[in-house]
Amino acid sequence: MTSPSPLTGVTGILRPFKEYLQSLGLSPGDQIVYYGCVGTCTPFVELLAIAVRGLHLEQVYVPLLDEGKAKKLYEVPDAGMQVSSEPAVLNPRVLVIMGGLAMPYMPVTKEQVRDLSVRHNNAKLAGVCFQNMFEKAGWLDTVKFDLLINAMIEPVTVTRREH
Rank of each mutant, 00 (worst) to 15 (best):
residue 113 V to H: 04
residue 25 G to A: 04
residue 66 D to A: 12
residue 84 S to P: 04
residue 143 V to P: 08
residue 125 L to Q: 09
residue 91 N to E: 12
residue 135 E to A: 14
residue 96 V to N: 09
residue 59 Q to G: 05
residue 22 Q to W: 10
residue 7 L to N: 15
residue 75 E to Q: 09
residue 95 L to T: 00
residue 160 R to H: 05
residue 15 R to W: 11
residue 70 A to H: 04
residue 21 L to W: 06
residue 88 A to H: 12
residue 91 N to W: 07
residue 64 L to W: 15
residue 101 L to P: 05
residue 3 S to D: 14
residue 66 D to P: 02
residue 5 S to C: 13
residue 149 I to R: 03
residue 1 M to W: 03
residue 98 M to G: 03
residue 87 P to L: 14
residue 63 P to Y: 09
residue 49 A to Y: 01
residue 122 N to R: 02
residue 104 P to C: 07
residue 154 E to W: 10
residue 72 K to L: 14
residue 93 R to C: 02
residue 112 Q to A: 02
residue 49 A to P: 01
residue 156 V to L: 14
residue 69 K to E: 11
residue 64 L to S: 14
residue 68 G to Q: 11
residue 9 G to D: 11
residue 131 Q to M: 15
residue 83 V to F: 00
residue 56 H to G: 05
residue 99 G to M: 03
residue 92 P to I: 05
residue 41 C to D: 12
residue 37 C to M: 06
residue 33 V to P: 04
residue 108 V to N: 07
residue 161 R to D: 08
residue 12 G to D: 10
residue 31 Q to I: 03
residue 122 N to D: 02
residue 156 V to N: 10
residue 133 M to P: 11
residue 22 Q to V: 14
residue 25 G to D: 03
residue 99 G to C: 03
residue 23 S to G: 13
residue 69 K to G: 06
residue 7 L to C: 13
residue 48 L to N: 07
residue 127 G to H: 08
residue 4 P to E: 15
residue 115 D to H: 08
residue 42 T to D: 00
residue 21 L to E: 06
residue 108 V to T: 10
residue 100 G to Y: 00
residue 53 R to K: 15
residue 140 L to H: 08
residue 63 P to H: 09
residue 95 L to S: 02
residue 142 T to F: 07
residue 73 L to E: 01
residue 120 H to F: 03
residue 150 N to K: 12
residue 115 D to F: 06
residue 21 L to D: 04
residue 55 L to A: 08
residue 110 K to Y: 12
residue 13 I to A: 08
residue 2 T to F: 10
residue 1 M to Y: 06
residue 107 P to V: 09
residue 57 L to P: 00
residue 38 V to G: 06
residue 4 P to F: 14
residue 9 G to M: 14
residue 90 L to G: 02
residue 135 E to C: 11
residue 10 V to G: 08
residue 160 R to A: 01
residue 67 E to L: 05
residue 146 D to G: 07
residue 149 I to N: 01
residue 114 R to V: 05
residue 121 N to A: 11
residue 71 K to G: 03
residue 158 V to Y: 11
residue 64 L to V: 10
residue 46 E to F: 00
residue 99 G to H: 01
residue 160 R to F: 01
residue 152 M to S: 15
residue 66 D to K: 12
residue 74 Y to L: 14
residue 56 H to E: 09
residue 20 Y to T: 04
residue 23 S to D: 07
residue 72 K to R: 15
residue 58 E to T: 10
residue 67 E to D: 03
residue 74 Y to T: 09
residue 36 G to A: 02
residue 136 K to W: 10
residue 127 G to K: 06
residue 141 D to F: 12
residue 23 S to P: 12
residue 33 V to D: 02
residue 123 A to S: 06
residue 24 L to K: 09
residue 105 Y to G: 08
residue 2 T to M: 14
residue 2 T to K: 13
residue 12 G to F: 05
residue 4 P to R: 15
residue 98 M to E: 00
residue 104 P to H: 08
residue 78 D to T: 13
residue 150 N to Q: 15
residue 44 F to Y: 12
residue 154 E to Q: 14
residue 63 P to K: 13
residue 46 E to T: 02
residue 81 M to D: 05
residue 80 G to Y: 10
residue 120 H to C: 00
residue 44 F to H: 08
residue 111 E to V: 03
residue 120 H to W: 06
residue 152 M to N: 15
residue 163 H to W: 12
residue 108 V to H: 08
residue 112 Q to D: 01
residue 14 L to S: 07
residue 36 G to D: 00
residue 69 K to D: 07
residue 65 L to M: 00
residue 49 A to H: 01
